[in-house]
Design a protein around this nucleic acid. Structure first.
Lengths: 252, 252
DNA sequence: CGGAAATTTGAAATCGCTCAATGATAGTGG
DNA sequence: CCACTATCATTGAGCGATTTCAAATTTCCG
């Protein structure tokens, strides 16, 4: 059995054993998906959220039948579907970009977590704010930068996230995204993404082969992309000082 | 003394008196800003968050010296600066679009709220997810729609939010945004925003005069914009069933 | 091995941008 | 209250980054 990855929690503080247990308890049933399979669909009633245990997942929104915007590339350890809990009907469609393993978390389990583990709850809250920052950066890139900058930014974004977990990302990494996917993420046409990849390759900044990607000149890519590498807080005093758990007998 | 507006809380559930008190207690010092005054600047260390009591505020990010993206138009009742709590240095710059009144909330006070008022904490969490949905819609509009659609979407977005609080918005509303501001929000040039406003006016969809705006044909604008009018959850069982408050004596 | 999905390339069209100049509005101090 | 100045809105002309359309390869997957 694959262990639940805790990356998104550990970014802000190291969970105590009983907090880890609370997380493990919240996720119940596990589901497997094949590449290209739809996990949840835009417009469906919202009943649960998910934890991505393994694989890549794309979250996207259909604007009209021919246009869709990818709003997030989810990697292992990410929560999926959280924005939908504010809605009666889901805003995003989730599609597996690779074979993927997912744990289902009920909304009731989430509520119990807020009641019993306030520090973990606050961590989840901070994590939601982090997602907002990433969306803001994405919006700024799409709104204010050129095609080559947006594609470079997307490459750097994925690279930086992979490197947090696996240092070998510097020697190249699996790249399951089609050029059509990149187009939907960077808000470009697939044709222009193709030309932009070709240009980056010609400049010696990236190398592509099969479904692998390697960034050859990261400093130069960062210079081009103008995409901020955010420094997130780590164990801030206002977070660590909160009580870790409310014993069950104190809850009526 | 102006009362603290609670719009963003009341969207998801009606706070109990002691929850209202907890909110009032969290906000301490009040500050006043003039139009165009900077409230907080991108890159500064993050020490506090704010509640917008009165006025409009723009949150924007500078991509380079000549390009900036407005990521949110804040109206009374909005929390300001929440995304920054995940960061060591602020990502957004806040500027008052009108004269504005703001309450300062310390991060410690926020922590106490998570410890003491779990239901309120969960409401804040859901509210953060709502903000993510709005950012996703914004990103989809900027990435996938034409100039006239983006400007229509921005107008509708503001109109819908104002109407929640004040029905007279249908008869026109104050419009403190310059065309340069609209340009930064919709990711267009100010010149093109001007031409797009002129077009909307020529089509009989809007009327502008001085710093007022009136939407003349909302159904047609909605048709053009293709901007979703989200239905947010209201008092969902998984939120209302959480215990309202942990008595102080149960906290060591 | 066959069919579907994805990539690549060319040519033509377009939406929105930049530059530049003029006109209107609003805020400020005398 | 008026004049002065900065900000904001408007309009024209030319250009260019990216799109669309179309067709040919190549790769992937069952």
């Amino acid at each position: 059995v694959k262990h639940v990855p805790l990356h998104r929690f550990q970014e802000f503080l190291t969970p105590t054993p009983c907090e880890v247990e609370a997380i493990e308890r919240a996720g119940r049933s596990r589901r497997e998906f094949r590449r290209r399979q739809v996990i949840s669909r835009q417009g469906e009633p919202v009943k649960e959220v998910y934890l991505l245990v393994d694989g890549w997942v794309a979250a996207s929104m259909e604007v009209d039948s021919s246009r869709r915007q990818m709003v997030k590339i989810h990697l292992p350890g990410d929560f999926l579907g959280f924005p939908n809990i504010a809605l009666a009907r889901a805003a995003e469609t989730m599609v597996a970009l690779t074979a993927a393993t997912i744990d289902v978390i009920s909304l009731d389990a989430l509520g119990r977590l807020f009641e019993r583990a306030p520090r973990l709850a606050f961590t989840l809250f901070v994590s939601a704010q982090q997602e907002r920052v990433m969306l803001m950066d994405h919006l700024a890139a799409v709104g204010q930068t050129s095609a080559i900058q947006r594609v470079s930014a997307l490459l750097l974004h994925v690279y930086r996230r992979l490197k947090l977990v696996d240092d070998r990302a510097a020697e190249g990494f699996d790249w399951p995204l089609s050029q059509e996917h990149v187009a939907q993420g960077a808000a470009l046409s697939a044709v222009h993404v193709n030309r932009t990849f070709a240009k980056l390759e010609r400049l010696g900044l990236i190398a592509r082969e099969r479904r692998r990607m390697k960034l050859l000149d990261i400093p130069r890519l960062e210079e081009i992309a103008a995409f901020p590498d955010r420094l997130f807080v780590r164990e801030p005093p206002w977070l660590t000082s909160i009580r870790e758990e409310i014993p069950p007998d104190e809850i009526s």
